[in-house]
């Protein structure tokens, strides 16, 4: 077996393990976690009947989604209606391709010395790739909202398109200030740059802006206006049922995972564990601990997403726009000016 074939196989294994297995399992855990945590916050018990502590509840939910009758309403635009659930999952899964979840190990496989990077693709425009792909997530919502041919869905689609454009700008500005400090668009470089001090300390304002914008980009409460159930029934997915609804549902959780992973990578040191180097552990253990650290950090932000959802009320639409354009955008610009001034000194 040649080295090239080996590299292709390693890449495929990474894609399957990370994108399909890890992401989907996390999705399932999240679905349960959201219901249990919300129940505890509201002083209830939540689903605890299927399996011990309700562990098997997501599987039961999934089975139910699969076995439900496929309903396609008569008044919808058939082609776009079926297209929307397919295109909403794609960008959500694609974004994770450049997120580094660990360092790298060098080992012998089948007689070849191979370096395995714990990152699917190490693009030199990594962070730009994420900005570009993340902005495509809106199409699923817009197309779904339009194709449903329902005024609530249409309003949901309209809101999501305006919201996404508005919050991409502060998000981009927050990323720019991080990139200015690092001097590289490569995500692995951004992580390595934080070895001395995490970006949350060096760039606290950018971190806050980015986290707020991430909530808006993933359509999570307090910014879930596109699906605001009290006003819009279900927003863009009002007319969807069974597995098609489930793919909107999964996309939301997948987006949450990617957003958490990004927050960790950009501001919380990625897979970096402070003082791990002094412990003089074997390389393999060090790598495993780093990957675990990344998972735990991401898990904390996933919990944070759920926590915020069940704590804060929803914004009104004009408040959302005011926050985006009149607060976050000027703050982002100010942060860039401050960063540039400090760096020039």
């Amino acid at each position: 077996m040649s080295v090239e074939t080996l590299n292709v196989i390693i890449a495929l294994v990474k894609i399957i393990l990370v994108v399909y297995v890890a992401m989907m399992v996390t999705d399932l855990i999240l679905i349960l976690a959201e219901r249990r945590i919300s129940a505890f916050i509201q002083d209830r018990l939540g689903p605890n009947r299927v399996g011990p502590q309700g562990i098997l509840q997501p599987l039961a939910d999934g089975l139910k989604f699969l076995l439900k009758e496929e309903v396609i309403p008569n008044h919808v635009d058939r082609f776009l209606y079926l297209l929307a659930p397919a295109i909403i999952l794609t960008p959500a899964l694609m974004t994770f391709a450049v997120v580094p979840f660990g360092d790298q190990i060098t080992t012998y496989i089948a007689g070849h010395l191979v370096t395995i990077r714990f990152q699917i693709a190490d693009l030199d425009v990594g962070i730009l790739y994420i900005v570009a792909i993340a902005s495509l997530g809106v199409y699923g919502l817009v197309v779904g909202g339009y194709a449903s041919n329902n005024k609530y869905s249409l309003l949901g689609g309209l809101r999501s398109s305006a919201q996404m454009i508005s919050y991409e700008l502060p998000m981009g500005l927050a990323i720019i200030s991080v990139v200015m400090m690092t001097g590289s668009l490569r995500l692995q470089d951004i992580v390595v740059d934080q070895f001395g001090m995490w970006n949350i300390i060096r760039q606290p304002l950018a971190a806050i802006i980015f986290i707020v914008a991430a909530f808006a980009e993933t359509n999570r409460l307090p910014f879930d206006l596109p699906e605001a159930e009290q006003e819009l029934v279900g927003g863009y997915h009002t007319e969807y049922s069974s597995m098609k609804f489930a793919s909107f549902f999964l996309a939301e959780y997948t987006n949450m995972i990617t957003a958490s992973a990004l927050i960790v990578t950009l501001f919380f040191g990625g897979w970096h564990v402070p003082f791990l180097h002094q412990a003089n552990l074997p390389v393999l253990w060090e790598q495993i601990i780093q990957i675990l650290a990344f998972v735990i950090k991401t898990g904390f932000f996933l919990f944070f997403f759920i926590w915020v959802r069940w704590t804060l009320p929803r914004f009104r639409y004009d408040q959302l726009m005011n926050l985006g354009w009149k607060a976050l955008l000027p703050l982002g610009l100010l942060n860039i000016v401050i960063t540039a001034a400090v760096m020039a000194l």
Partner: peptide, 28 residues
Amino acid sequence: AHFIAIVHIAVYAGAIMVLFLFVIMLLN
């Protein structure tokens, strides 16, 4: 042209076309 390709997606697909869809849906 890797850089231009990514910027192209971010600018055109991410911003300009969303604006088009927004206007088309807004004006119905």
